[in-house]
Write a protein that binds this DNA or RNA. Structure first.
Lengths: 173, 173
DNA sequence: TATTGTTATACTCTATAACTATA
DNA sequence: TATAGTTATAGAGTATAACAATA
């Protein structure tokens, strides 16, 4: 078990403890979010193992597909990963034949990252698995409940200053 | 940034992508849960830094306080940590003067773990910070919305087979 | 001089196996 | 022999600094 999940579990325990010790209503929204977040990440990781892909690769493929003529520096900044780590991650994707580095002709310092045909096919498979993941995770909720949950979640995201497209909150770890 | 948070972010990106590409309603409940879970763990970690305590220590203190005459093996099993790792974690807490090992008189193989007075005081401080954490995280919601969110969260937890007191889902990482 | 990609390196966390002391 | 705790060690993931090529 990695440290982050352990952290989430610790958090869960502590918040449960808090609820008990203060005799409050057992809302525990923070606890539930931490627990479910860890669970969601865990299950997603398990799900994409069949593609022989680690979770960290998934987001990279997505961004390369979205940003045209994306270079490693841009990608690293976007994900909050160090450039030195980015090299290794891209190496792994290149090794799998999903991504190619192409030296920019205008500025030969840049490596333009492009998806191979296999990379695009992989992204399509990932998309299907993500849909399954979403469906499975929310299988216990009606469509209306799902919308309510999402609306409340977005409310917290907004109030906490989190923006889905940028994730600035995770950068300063 | 550690790999787990990166994983959560990757998941976020992917699910966002999915929503866009399939022109679905942007519910993205799984995305939101992963994002908020990572955010909650992050913020909690930041919050307890002032106590010079790492998040991984918090849950351990909690369990030692809850389970009487708890030994390391039990603790390790409960948290899903390897016994060898548990030794180091307990060493850290002993070094901070929060926990003491006491050889069991009935079976001298066991180390009974007990909180020191400083350990109990630390747990009380942690409890206060956890309360602040919960309040801050849900600051954007009314009391009723908080209850709704928690109810929906519990519904997922139940349907997914997660039990807050055991966390069996995280064990097999 | 500044920037992109890269390598080298150290540090932490995780995982496995082997050791000790008890039973 | 079996179990609790411990040690040693190898492997990942993360962070920092330094380097070569290019601008």
């Amino acid at each position: 078990m990695n440290d982050c999940l352990f952290q989430l579990i610790s958090l869960s325990w502590l918040l449960t403890s808090l609820m008990e010790s203060r005799k409050q209503q057992p809302t525990g929204a923070a606890f539930l979010l931490a627990q479910l977040g860890a669970h969601a990440a865990d299950r997603f990781g398990e799900r994409i193992k069949r593609l022989r892909l680690a979770p960290r690769h998934a987001g990279i493929l997505r961004i390369i597909a979205k940003i045209p003529s994306c270079n490693q520096r841009t990608l690293a900044k976007r994900l909050g990963v160090l450039p030195s780590r980015m090299v290794i991650l891209i190496d792994e994707l290149v090794g799998k034949g999903l991504v190619e580095r192409k030296r920019s002709t205008t500025d030969r310092r840049h490596s333009v990252l492009i998806l191979t045909r296999r990379g695009r096919a992989m992204l399509e498979k990932l998309s299907k698995l993500a849909a399954e993941h979403e469906a499975d995770l929310c299988a216990g909720l009606t469509a209306e409940e799902r919308n309510t949950l999402a609306a409340l979640g977005r409310k917290i995201v907004h109030q906490q200053g989190l923006t889905p497209d940028v994730h600035p909150g995770y950068r300063k770890l």
